[in-house]
Computed example of a mutant assay.
Amino acid sequence: MADITDIKSIVYTEKSLGLQEEGYIVVQTSDKVTKNQLKTILKEYFGVNPVKINSLRMKGKTKRFRGIEGKRDNYKKFYVKLPEGANIESLAV
Rank of each mutant, 00 (worst) to 15 (best):
T62G: 04
Y75L: 06
G70N: 06
V80R: 01
N49Q: 14
L42E: 09
K77D: 00
K63T: 07
Y79E: 07
K43D: 15
I68S: 10
R66S: 08
L82F: 09
G70P: 02
G47C: 04
G85Q: 09
F78D: 02
K61R: 14
G60R: 08
R72N: 12
V51E: 15
I53C: 08
M58N: 12
P83F: 05
D73L: 07
V48P: 06
D73V: 07
S55Y: 00
K61Y: 01
K71S: 05
G60V: 05
K76H: 00
G47M: 03
V48S: 08
D73W: 03
F46P: 03
F46A: 01
V80A: 04
R57T: 08
F46T: 03
T62Y: 12
F46R: 09
M58K: 13
G47N: 14
L82I: 06
Y45G: 08
P50E: 11
L82K: 06
L38P: 11
S55I: 02
K59Y: 07
K39T: 14
G70R: 12
T62W: 10
F65T: 10
Y75F: 14
K71W: 05
G47T: 05
Y79Q: 03
Y45V: 04
F65P: 00
L56D: 02
R57V: 08
N49K: 15
K59T: 10
N49T: 15
K71E: 14
I41W: 01
K76D: 00
L38M: 09
K63Q: 03
P83E: 10
E69G: 03
K59H: 04
K63G: 01
T40C: 04
V48M: 10
K71R: 15
L56W: 00
I53M: 07
K61V: 07
V51N: 10
G67C: 02
F46D: 08
K52C: 02
I68L: 10
K39N: 14
R66E: 09
G70D: 05
V51K: 13
K43R: 15
N49I: 11
K71M: 11
I68V: 14
T40R: 13
T40K: 15
Y79L: 03
M58C: 09
K43Q: 15
E84K: 14
R66C: 06
K52E: 15
K59C: 02
F78Y: 11
L42W: 09
P50T: 11
K76E: 00
Y75A: 03
T62I: 13
I41M: 06
E69S: 13
R64V: 13
Y75C: 11
K63E: 04
G70H: 12
P83Q: 08
E84T: 13
K77L: 10
K76L: 01
